[in-house]
Amino acid sequence: MNKSFLLIAAITFVTINLFSQPITNHQSPITIKDVWARPGAKNANSALYFVVQNNGSKADTILGAKSKYAEIVEVHESFKRDNDRMGMRQVKFVAVAANSKLEFKPGGFHVMLINLLKDVKAGTSLDATINFKFAGKIKVKAVVQEMPGM
């Protein structure tokens, strides 16, 4: 009786802990910090920004992202054309070099949250998952704000 109880308790403990962890490879040298997103209205778009730090000796690659807050989530980059024209395009992947820091920031790389499923208001937060080739899926929580520090 005691052995069965202990066995069930052990299995329960392991199961709960296994599934409560972020879907992350804990040996991963990848960390993501300073995550924020712009406010956006339902059916409009928003963008997600963050800093990726790769402390490993091997490059990794961002393959995409997901969020339950938007119908479509894509990695995009803004680009300059001529002197004063700006555009934006989807990118299929973004390389993160070994022992380097890569910033997703306004005017550069960003994760597009396309067709928001509800209002995303300043002062709230939203969840997303960034998918790496080697590090796997890393969950992030973004602070919703117009600009950092505002």
Binding site: I72, R81, D84, R85, G87, M88, R89, N115
Partner: peptide, 25 residues
């Protein structure tokens, strides 16, 4: 001011939105 449709996203229901290359002014 220049604003030219460039990239676009098509949704499952067929709706399409455009992203413009545009003058940043």
């Amino acid at each position: 001011v220049l604003a030219v449709p460039n990239d676009s996203t098509v949704f499952k229901d067929g709706r399409k939105i455009y992203y413009y290359v545009h003058t940043d002014r």
